[in-house]
């Protein structure tokens, strides 16, 4: 050990070395549920070739991966599976949410689709598009590498800081109103028109 050298200098350099190693050997775990999964496949296939960025080792076992790529919509029945997979991945780990559906529910604003996975698990990188072109995903992987290089620490302390998920709260206000409405309608007391009209009157 270098005598008298301030401890923090030593740590910083180790961080940089670790980050360099990590960022250039990301092992993605493709959680491909829908159409975006096909574009993910296209990214790994002949023309676009994800291997050029050191991230081609798709491992389908979460315990050997450090980058979760959620490609496609996640529905009510699937979300517990996704959460379990996230929990099974060892630290340090990151998550890319690929496609409009995974980021926000996309065109599927329906009863079954989770409106953005970031409400329930942490997300580092969002890739917009429906589906994102392979080039976009490549860019996201490169950005992810930059982020890993920039923010990582050897001990993975950056993960301990945030204890809020990044996305909006699971319940947004208009969702809550709608649920109340439908409950009232079920009770038979109000008609749908009456409740929503009454609310807009009081709000206005």
């Amino acid at each position: 050990m270098a005598v008298g050298l301030p401890e923090n200098i030593f740590i910083t350099k180790l961080d940089a070395a670790a980050n360099w190693a990590r960022s250039n050997s990301l092992w993605p775990m493709p959680f491909a549920t829908a159409c975006c999964g096909i574009e993910l496949m296209a990214t790994a296939a002949s023309r676009h070739d994800l291997a050029r960025f050191g991230a081609e080792v798709m491992r389908f076992s979460p315990r050997q991966c450090d980058l979760l790529i959620v490609a496609g919509r996640v529905v009510m029945k699937m979300l517990p599976v996704l959460q379990r997979i996230w929990l099974q991945m060892p630290e340090p780990k990151w998550c890319i949410s690929m496609g409009a559906c995974a980021c926000s529910g996309g065109v599927f604003d329906t009863y079954a689709v989770v409106q953005g996975i970031d409400r329930f698990i942490p997300v580092d990188m969002y890739v917009p598009g429906c589906p994102p072109r392979p080039e976009q995903l490549l860019q996201a992987v490169m950005d992810m590498q930059a982020k890993v290089r920039r923010t990582g620490t050897v001990m993975g302390r950056e993960f301990a800081i945030r204890d809020m998920p990044t996305g909006p709260a699971p319940f947004d206000s208009d969702e809550r109103y709608r649920i109340e409405d439908s409950r009232l309608i079920q009770l038979g007391g109000f008609s749908a028109a009456a409740t929503s009209a009454g609310r807009s009157a009081t709000q206005g």
Binding site: L79, P80, Q83, W86, V114, F120, P122, I161, R162, P170
Partner: peptide, 8 residues
């Protein structure tokens, strides 16, 4: 659903 955070 339950919410999973970074530190959790």
């Amino acid at each position: 659903f339950p919410v999973i955070t970074r530190s959790g």
